[in-house]
């Protein structure tokens, strides 16, 4: 089942914007409302838009199940290893060793209300990105699996 050409073209146009906005929400998770889960959900909304507008057979080339599985595993692994990396620097598991060291994501932060700086908060942006990738892969693959279940039922 596919929608009209107008709907399909609009979905194709809006899909990259959904991804970019989700990436913005993920990257600014430590400064503005949002974070890994919300941004990942926004990106998965883009995938859902494509799935609604196109037929399932036309979309399998653009959203592959294997790629989504790999994305999800990579996200969880990133979260785990970012947490474990605290052990290398004499901190507990998930200790925030990157903050205030002067390297990546570690500018000194002003206390109290401030305009915000992307290069702060140490380990938190890394964990945000990991969770964002995991939620994107997980929600998209749930949608793909359920749609393929409907598809397999109609065939005989």
């Amino acid at each position: 089942m596919k929608m009209t050409k107008i709907v399909r073209t609009t979905a194709d146009v809006f899909y990259p914007f959904c991804l970019v906005f989700g990436l913005y929400v993920v990257m600014h998770g430590h400064l503005t409302p949002g974070g890994g889960f919300q941004g990942g959900a926004v990106m998965a909304t883009g995938a859902a838009l494509l799935l609604v507008a196109h037929a399932y057979e036309d979309i399998t080339g653009r959203l592959r199940k294997t790629a989504m599985k790999i994305l999800e595993a990579i996200g969880l692994m990133m979260f785990l290893f970012a947490g474990l990396s605290g052990l290398l620097f004499e901190r507990p598991f998930m200790g925030n060793w990157m903050a205030f060291t002067g390297k990546w994501f570690s500018h000194p932060v002003a206390h109290g209300p401030n305009p915000g700086d992307l290069n702060t908060a140490g380990l938190l942006p890394l964990l945000n990105i990991g969770v964002g990738i995991e939620v994107l892969g997980g929600l998209t693959i749930i949608l793909l699996y359920m749609l393929s279940g409907i598809h397999a039922e109609k065939k005989p």
Binding site: L31, G35, E72, F79, N96, T120, A121, L124, G138
Partner: peptide, 30 residues
């Protein structure tokens, strides 16, 4: 933690174990 967003600093730093379990639940559901 150096983060302006206090909710994020709680979710990912003060209660990091909780978030690890949450991510595991999502993975298991998938």
């Amino acid at each position: 933690t150096g983060a302006n967003n206090i909710v994020t600093s709680i979710v990912f730093d003060f209660r990091g174990f909780d978030t690890l379990g949450e991510a595991t639940v999502l993975f298991t559901a998938v």
